[in-house]
Simulated assay, not measured.
Amino acid sequence: MRLSWYKIWRLGVKEWWSLARDPVMLGLIVYSFTAAVWIAATAQPDTLSRAALAIVDEDVSPLSLRIRQAFLAPQFMAPEQIGLAQLDTRLDRGSATFVLVIPAGFQRRVLAGRPAALQLNVDATRMSQAFAGSGYIEQIALGEVAAFMHGVRADASARVALVARARFNPTLTPSWFGGLMELINNVTMLAVILSGAALIREREHGTVEHLLAMPVRGAEILLAKLWSMATVVLLATMVALLVVLRGLLEVGLQGSLPLFLLGVALHLFATTSLGILMAASARGMPQFGLLVILAMLPLQMLSGATTPRESIPAVLRELMLLAPTTHFVELSQAILFRGAGFEVVWRPMLALLAIGAVLSGLGLARFGAALRPR
Rank of each mutant, 00 (worst) to 15 (best):
R309G: 09
A365F: 12
L241I: 12
E80W: 00
E204R: 13
L294Y: 06
L299V: 01
L297H: 01
R90D: 14
L321M: 12
G284M: 07
M349D: 08
I355M: 05
L162I: 13
I55N: 05
A40K: 02
P298V: 04
A305W: 01
E144M: 09
P215C: 08
L162A: 13
Q75W: 06
G218N: 15
L321Y: 08
A161M: 12
P215I: 01
L322T: 10
L291G: 13
L242H: 07
P23Y: 00
D57E: 07
G27V: 00
R309H: 03
Q119R: 12
L268A: 06
I276M: 15
P74V: 00
L241Y: 07
I355P: 10
Q86C: 04
L364G: 01
F288K: 02
P62C: 08
P313V: 05
P103M: 00
V216H: 03
A132W: 00
I102V: 15
L362M: 14
L235T: 12
Y6S: 11
I137N: 05
M25R: 13
S32C: 13
P373N: 01
F260K: 01
V208N: 13
I276W: 09
L277P: 07
E58V: 06
G12T: 00
G284Q: 08
A112Y: 05
M229R: 13
Y31D: 02
L65Q: 13
E220A: 00
G27M: 03
R283D: 14
L316S: 10
F76W: 08
A54Y: 06
P348I: 06
V315M: 13
L100K: 00
E182T: 04
G255S: 08
R108Y: 07
A323L: 10
R372S: 11
V152F: 03
S134Q: 15
A154T: 14
S157P: 04
V122F: 02
L268G: 02
P215A: 04
L118P: 12
A158C: 07
S360Q: 12
F131Y: 11
L87F: 00
F260G: 08
W346E: 07
S311H: 03
V329Y: 00
W16S: 03
Q81Y: 00
L268P: 08
R153M: 12
L352R: 02
R50W: 12
L199R: 00
T173F: 02
A295F: 15
A213H: 07
A130W: 05
P373L: 06
V192Y: 05
T325H: 14
L63G: 07
R66L: 15
G133P: 11
L172C: 01
A240H: 03
A334K: 04
G178N: 06
L350M: 11
V208S: 14
L84W: 02
T125I: 05
A357H: 02
L199G: 03
V344Q: 12
L371K: 00
L294W: 05
W16A: 08
R2F: 09
L91W: 07
L299I: 00
Q75N: 10
L26M: 14
K14D: 13
A156T: 14
G143N: 09
P62S: 06
N121V: 11
A147F: 08
L65S: 12
L290F: 08
R68F: 13
E144V: 09
L253R: 01
A104Q: 14
A197F: 10
E138A: 14
L257W: 05
